[in-house]
Nucleic acid binder design. Structure first.
Length: 686
DNA sequence: ATGACCAATTGA
DNA sequence: CAATTGGTCATG
């Protein structure tokens, strides 16, 4: 598209009413004056300017010069003069006149005619900013990828017609109660909302693809969000199998700016209507959106690490609410947020009955790993493996590959009491202890305090051990315990996506488990006590999610599939694993959260920064009725020292809480005070 | 942010 | 009395 020349702002026509009365002025040394005419129709552009200041987070009106009339359209990029600087912005709309009293400055440049910000996404960015008490320009940065001019100039490929076999889609979903109805409703143009408990095994990408296909059959678009690139690749392949080539697109950040922009344009121009992607794809401008879906919404990869830290699930739910489209939350596990949607009746459950589940799930057992048991067993002593687990591995290896999930990577991370195995914590701040160097006493990883005379508060023991050995060390030890068996590792920056079906030991960290055709003969979950040693709000939910993720890679019980978890069989979270009951667990967890006034039953916001700023920020809030302020308390391990306050409000007052946070940030920004970091419903609150 | 403006404060 | 500094306000 043609790009327009810069405009001299001295040559301002009068504001919007009537034709512009151009005044020429030739300043000494200035470029020769050119008369600027306003666009013949809708001469005013409402522009969202890219400035990071909270109190400037609203549209500003500019005059559209006649030369830019063709190029400037709703959703297009422009450059404008703002507060003496050239800044970029997005045109929200073209209107006939402005409410602004003073004269309007002309747009400085029309960057492109490409409408990259659709009206729906423009509205969504506003809702997300409001919900997370952030600025719209921050959200816009997440929503619209950077421009690549060469890609934009190329002619788009013609949309491919899509033929969908709705009967096949329905067939795939009938394993679930409510599944057939879900597909029917999608295909008929309805907007069902469902929380889907996926059956173990590798069918979920295909089911997501079929849900998308049913939506396309109704003439609408579908948007599928998954946690990582491995998942994108799997759903991508399933969409190709179900829809044929060229009918969908994968949106990921790691493919480079040109490829990313090309995929984005295919969506925004309506060339394709089915999209799979990671968290940034939640903002994809899918035409005629009919379905939003998120897989494994408990995965913290779906939580955006950049301000204002929106979560993919919440972005998609805002979209579904706003556009009245269908919503699907699926996973092996269930988050408390998904459970909440069921409890409030907003979504329906889609789950298989117990008989179907029993047929497809492996047999799950828990085996203790007390020191006494370990002492009786020399193999266990070296490999942290009780006899039961050791035997299950041996039996599994006779049938195929065996997966061992080990909680963390690296050689030594956390210390624990040598006698009772309780993870050792700092008496000052409760942070984990570490050994930083040989011949130094243990020190706290958070506050750095050295603990030369540490004693276990549980049993009084003074010895420390480093019980957590990463996947590489685990692999070495197991290789010795099972000589002759190939050992593969996956974790950290060396992740295997798939392994061969033959007998092998596969050691992986959570989320890095390789796929294997026909499933693992046996899955062993090591050191479950360690995964539960964290003090985070979501520790148990997260542990169960990771265990179910690994367990769902095992063969069905009928094919000999077994899962052995090494841990305390009395723990409810491990009992939920044995019964394969993520729904029941999420239900109990939600009740506990509700009685403790924690999300999702309440809305939380954390404010962090230097102590003075946090105190002033909290004082500047107009808190809704029923809310309370916790803290501020020092943030452990922060240097320079920071403090954090947590504000808690009833869920119904969540909107009011976000509004007062936005207002407070606006006031602070106008007064040139340092911004306080605000996180609404942060994922990892200790 | 940047810049404009006004008022209070400081300096010769 | 002028120069300087600090707060407030607006940014189209």
């Amino acid at each position: 598209m043609a790009e327009d020349r810069d405009t001299d702002e001295a040559l301002l026509p009068a504001p919007s009413r009537g034709p512009a009365s151009a005044r020429a002025r030739v300043a000494h040394g200035a470029p020769p004056a050119v008369t600027t005419h306003a666009a013949p129709e809708l001469p005013v552009a409402r522009v969202l300017v890219d400035v990071p200041l909270a109190h400037l987070d609203r549209p500003f009106d500019y005059l559209v010069p006649a030369t830019m009339h063709e190029t400037v359209c709703p959703g297009s990029r422009v450059k404008v003069r703002f507060a003496g600087q050239d800044v970029s912005g997005f045109v929200l709309e073209r209107v006939a006149s402005s409410d602004h009293e003073g004269r309007l400055a002309p747009l400085r440049r029309a960057v492109s005619a490409e409408p990259v910000l659709s009206p729906e996404v423009a509205r969504l960015t506003g809702l997300v900013a409001a919900r997370y008490a952030g600025t719209r320009s921050d959200v816009l940065r997440l929503a619209v990828p950077s421009r690549h001019a060469a890609v934009e100039k190329r002619e788009p490929p013609a949309p491919q017609p899509v033929e969908v076999d709705v009967t096949a889609a329905r067939q795939e979903w009938t394993a679930y109660a409510g599944g057939g109805e879900l597909v029917d409703a999608l295909a008929a143009g309805g907007s069902p909302r469902a929380v889907w408990s996926a059956l173990p095994g590798g069918s979920w990408p295909r089911l997501l693809a079929h849900a998308a296909a049913a939506t396309l059959a109704s003439g609408r678009g579908a948007l599928l969000c998954v946690p990582d690139h491995k998942d994108v690749a799997r759903v991508d392949a399933a969409l190709t199998a179900v829809l044929g080539k060229g009918r969908h697109v994968a949106l990921t950040a790691d493919v480079g700016p040109a490829a990313r922009y090309r995929a984005f344009l295919a969506v925004s121009r309506g060339t394709v209507r089915a999209v799979v992607g990671t968290r940034a794809a939640a903002f994809a401008p899918v035409h005629d959106l009919g379905l939003v879906a998120v897989w494994d919404d408990g995965d913290d990869l779906l939580s955006e690490p950049r301000a204002p830290y929106p979560h993919t699930r919440e972005v998609l739910l805002l979209r579904a609410r706003e556009q009245g489209c269908a919503a699907l939350l699926g996973g092996f596990a269930r988050t408390v947020e998904a459970e909440y949607l069921l409890r409030t009746g907003w979504a329906r459950e889609v789950a298989a009955d117990r008989a179907t589940l029993r047929a497809l799930a492996p047999v799950v057992s828990v085996t203790g790993a007390t020191d006494r048991e370990l002492e009786r067993d020399p193999h266990a002593r070296t490999a942290r493996l009780p006899r039961t687990a050791y035997d299950a591995i041996g039996a599994g290896l006779a049938q195929g590959p065996v997966l061992l999930q080990t909680p963390r990577q690296g050689y030594v991370t956390v210390l624990a009491c040598d006698s009772c195995r309780t993870p050792s914590r700092c008496p000052v701040c409760a942070g984990p202890l570490q050994l930083r160097a040989a011949h130094r006493p243990p020190s706290c990883r958070w506050c750095g305090t050295e603990q030369p005379h540490w004693a276990c508060p549980i049993c009084g023991g003074r010895g420390l051990r480093a019980p957590v050995v990463g996947e590489r060390r685990t692999a070495e030890e197991l290789g010795r315990a099972f000589p002759g068996v190939p050992v593969r590792t996956s974790g950290g920056d060396r992740v295997l996506s798939e392994v061969e079906p033959g007998p092998a030991l596969v050691v992986a960290t959570p989320g890095a488990e390789p796929l294997v055709e026909d499933g693992y003969a046996c899955v062993v979950l090591l050191d479950t006590w360690l995964a539960l040693a964290r003090t985070d709000l979501r520790t148990q939910e997260e542990a169960l999610r990771r265990w179910l993720g690994a367990a769902s890679l095992a063969r069905p019980a009928g094919d000999g599939g077994r899962v052995v978890a090494v841990g305390d069989p009395a723990l409810p979270v491990l009992q939920a694993l044995v019964r394969w009951d993520p729904a029941g667990f999420a239900g109990r967890e939600l009740e506990e959260r509700a009685s403790a006034h924690l999300p999702p039953a309440s809305r939380l916001a954390s404010l962090s920064g230097p102590a003075d700023d946090v105190a002033a920020a909290v004082a500047g809030l107009t808190l809704p009725a029923g809310s309370e302020v916790l803290g501020p308390v020092p943030v452990p391990g922060s240097d320079p020292p920071l403090e954090r306050a947590v504000v808690r409000a009833p869920r119904a007052a969540g909107g009011a809480l976000s509004r007062t946070l936005v207002e407070m940030q606006g006031v602070r920004s106008a007064r040139k005070l340092a911004p306080v970091r605000v996180q609404v419903d942060p994922v990892g609150l200790g």
